[in-house]
Design a protein around this nucleic acid. Structure first.
Lengths: 247, 247
DNA sequence: CTCATTTTATGAACCGGATTCAAAATCGCT
DNA sequence: AGCGATTTTGAATCCGGTTCATAAAATGAG
């Protein structure tokens, strides 16, 4: 009956409220000082109520991560429908991810933590499942771009699973987000402008995979132009006044 | 005087003892259940004594990581002195890392956790510094291989910092270790044999960077042969009876 | 509308484990 | 041996996540 629906809606709303409050606390004071009691208090609920939604602190973290992944999926989907050469679309995934990292600087920190044994094992199976399912569309999006690439003759998978083609891109991006957050590491080797370097390496990788049309990874002009074009055509709304992928 | 020396030596020995005990506990029961009191007890010391060496639990974790990195450095150094084409030597770094991951399955889990904001910020500046310094030689080793490659005409850095050449390899490897440990993720997309896929992607990347001699990333035979050769010539002692890079 | 019953919210109490620190033991030296 | 200085000890403290007995609210039958 209608009563049930209303109740469920309210429950969902409250969960949202908790998630927002928790996210804000993380942005404000860092992961380190997130406290369950504080989150509940900030929403004018008792601690116990918070536990009706999340089995543990780790559970809450995984849930926040899911929420952010959901937004990240939207980025990926833009590249699926963008009408451009497949090479630019797959490259655009990386560009989009960098933009995403600027908009939600907490996401990759959190994700790194969440996929840590300590958190992952402590979260409930349900939440873990949920995060995996929320993440699935990212893979699907990439898969579709690869399919298009193969169909267009831009890429030959040589009989390997299609997703394997972009595993290097995936891990490279992931690893770079890690490095960026590991304060002191890149500085140790005097490496500046990490995301720009990532894009150069990515171009090299795509070339090495034979993804057409090839692009000179050391042609700064061409790289800059391509990034600009992607920003303008796909992420205009996220890149107002002087957004760039540096920092 | 001599008394001082002896004392210092004993201190260092005790620290070693604590580190080993902690590492064993991690291997045994996982990061999750590492307890300071247990570590101290296992070494027949009081909790307080443990705290004379490590400012906090996080500090201890970073110290363990340093210890393991030290062993990892040894792997890197073998490739610096190996007499082979630079392309095989840089590739050997990845192969060595995979072997290392088999020998110390706890390392990359731990490293992922340690470079998390939560742990990194909670450790003392001193330990952080120590870990960075311990890590430095890995970069130096890679740098030397790149220098050799440039000198031999195998690679053209196009005016970029030399280390940037292998940043893709670094992040790719790092990211893959992360994925491997994130239980359920690779399964979600039906990706098997992650480290083998990593090596294929790496070959593609090195090709894309123009690192000579080029190698077909989809030539299974050639890949297998190269891996075998590296294992035999560089890591024979670590690969007795049927060690391979799969799993 | 009332009252019994079920469901949900509350927050103080509980608990585990990291960290501290006052007291005890040991050391180094004369 | 004796006496300050240094080190070790482990019980006490502290902190914050989690639980659960109690209170409050919702439900629904009469």
């Amino acid at each position: 009956m209608a009563t049930q629906d209303r109740k469920e809606r309210q429950l969902a709303e409250r969960e949202q409220l908790f998630l927002s409050a928790a996210r804000e606390q993380i942005c404000q004071d860092g992961l380190l000082s997130l406290q369950m009691a504080k989150v509940a208090r900030a929403c004018d609920y008792a601690t116990g109520t918070l536990y009706q939604h999340f089995a543990s602190k780790e559970d809450l973290l995984v849930a926040i991560c899911s929420e952010l992944v959901d937004k990240r999926v939207e980025i990926f989907n833009r590249l699926v429908t963008w009408n451009a050469p497949t090479r630019e679309r797959i490259f655009g995934i990386a560009v989009g991810d960098i933009i995403f990292a600027h908009h939600y600087p907490e996401h990759f920190r959190l994700a790194q933590f969440v996929f840590t044994e300590v958190v992952w094992q402590a979260a409930s199976a349900k939440r873990r499942q949920q995060l995996l399912e929320t993440s699935k569309p990212m893979g699907d999006a990439v898969q579709r771009i690869i399919e298009d690439a193969v169909a267009a003759g831009d890429l030959d998978p040589h009989g390997r699973p299609l997703l394997e083609m972009t595993l290097g891109q995936w891990t490279m991006t992931l690893g770079m987000h890690n490095l960026v957050h590991a304060e002191g590491v890149l500085e140790l080797y005097n490496l500046r402008d990490p995301y720009r370097m990532l894009l150069r390496q990515l171009n090299a990788l795509l070339n090495g995979l034979g993804w057409q049309p090839q692009q000179d990874p050391f042609d700064e002009q061409a790289l800059e132009a391509l990034v600009q074009r992607i920003q303008r055509n796909v992420f205009a709304d996220l890149c107002e006044n002087g957004c760039n992928d540096k920092q």
